[in-house]
Amino acid sequence: MNIMFYVLLLFILIAAVIAVETKNLLSSVICIGAIGFGVSIMFLFLRAPDIAITQIVVEVLGLIILIRATISRDLTFISGDKEFFGTVVSVVIIFMIFLVGIRVFDTIPEFGQPTFAQAHNPASETYIEDGLEKTGAANIIASIILDFRAYDTLGEATVLFTSIIGATVILRRKSRKALGELE
């Protein structure tokens, strides 16, 4: 499984690089889709089917939108050269952040084993052990997102709501009334 995991990681990385570097928008979009599916498979490896499902359905929908947007555009190629100075600056900055990152990721704990955890970690253990008893939901994920942390979910639903309202507002046809219409 481990090897598969790293192969997948490599696949995602390559797709990401192609998505950034290619000049054909459609290829770029398809690469983004590939990344998304790769990620959802990784979730499956990590034994998180809920997130995998969500990831996959959102990916499908997102891909449909992106492809439609791309193919209905006349301009499917990005033109123009990259600035040399900008590239150099980005590379230098990324390299330096990478240097810092090495030190940081050194300290990242084993998966699911927080370094700083207290001897007894009440939250996650309780979720797993007593989730069903406490909430009656067999799916622990559901018990967490809709009961223990339902308030977060309300927040996320609101995020979605806000972005929809925002999109409808920004995409409306007429934004200002004519001067005469005011009173």
């Binding site: 900008g86 600056v89 980005s90 900055i93 330096m96 952040i97 810092v100």
Partner: peptide
Amino acid sequence: TWLTLGLLIVLF
């Protein structure tokens, strides 16, 4: 670019 530069300085 400023943002990342700032991030770098803050990090350091």
